[in-house]
């Protein structure tokens, strides 16, 4: 059926606004319920391990290679202007402000956001969420709130570790491949690093942790239609979390650093 362009655009706009409204309402409900007991501590600890501890290998690998590539690429650029001494600073600032939180966020979105949507989605289509309600347990408090809190708390820790590993990657390339003096490399790294560089990255990480878990929980919780519905929920969770991470990254950067 051929629809006029305006009709198609109108429908897409309405669908977008409807989805935005539904996600916002879900987020408000989650925040409201996170302020009321009971708190499921064991669930929270389990989710912290899932999001933080088990994501360490993948985030660590991403960080070390990113740091190494940053050092190499910076060298090829800065060597033209004899500004090689700026490399440690470029590496650490890029990692703490941008690449650490963004890459860790994207990796966790792929690993954890997808798993969360699949787990909660399967619980939805097999009536396990209804079963929680019949056992006088609020599914929101039992499933959603612990994941959101775990995401907000754990992502900054994960990003801090990623920052350190990324700087180590830059250090290894700088010292063993580009012949930097190791003490000078570390001094240059620390001398120009400011509290705000690290802090802004950790704020980003906390926001990304919220967004990843929110998208995983929302798409899982609202999934329907059996295996196909769960598959769609998983895809939507990863895609929407990734887009939101990149969008919010810009706005947080602007809030911290725009002159």
């Amino acid at each position: 059926m051929n629809l006029p362009l305006l009709t198609v655009l109108g429908r897409m706009t309405l669908a977008f606004l409807e989805a935005t409204g539904a996600v916002t309402a879900f987020a408000f409900q989650a925040v409201r319920r996170s302020l009321q007991p009971p708190y499921y501590r064991q669930q929270m600890i389990r989710q912290m391990l899932e999001i933080g501890y088990y994501s360490l290998p993948v985030v660590g690998l991403t960080a070390i290679f990113t740091g190494m590539v940053l050092a190499l690429q910076s060298y090829t650029g800065f060597a033209r202007f004899s500004a090689e001494s700026a490399i440690p600073n470029v590496v650490v600032v890029s990692l703490t402000r941008e690449l650490g939180p963004v890459l860790a966020g994207l990796m966790v979105a792929g690993r954890v956001g997808a798993a969360m949507a699949a787990e909660i989605g399967t619980m939805r289509v097999t009536e396990q969420i209804d079963a929680l309600t019949t056992l006088s347990t609020d599914p929101f408090k039992y499933l959603v709130v612990p994941r959101l809190i775990a995401g907000i708390v754990t992502l900054p820790i994960l990003v801090l570790v990623a920052d350190i590993i990324g700087v180590l990657g830059g250090f290894l390339v700088g010292v063993y491949k580009l012949d930097f003096n190791d003490a000078a490399y570390l001094r240059n790294t620390m001398d120009f690093l400011q509290f705000q560089d690290v802090f802004s990255g950790l704020v980003k990480a906390a926001v990304f942790g919220f967004l990843i878990t929110l998208m995983g929980c929302y798409h899982g919780y609202t999934s329907k239609g059996g295996a196909q519905g769960v598959g769609m929920a998983t895809t939507n969770a990863v895609v929407s979390a990734s887009i939101l991470i990149l969008t919010f990254n810009y706005f947080i950067t602007e809030a911290f650093f725009a002159r």
């Binding site: 787990e119 399967t122 009536e127 396990q128 079963a131 309600t133 019949t134 056992l135 006088s136 039992y142």
Partner: peptide
């Protein structure tokens, strides 16, 4: 809801928990 018990068509057992934890879920959590 405290007055209700429900047997779902597919069982709706929590697959991440052991059988005894499923049965004890209501008494422990609620």
């Amino acid at each position: 809801m405290r007055k209700f018990g429900m047997l779902f068509q597919g069982g709706a057992l929590f697959d991440s928990l052991r059988v005894w934890e499923n049965v004890a879920f209501g008494p422990i959590q609620s």
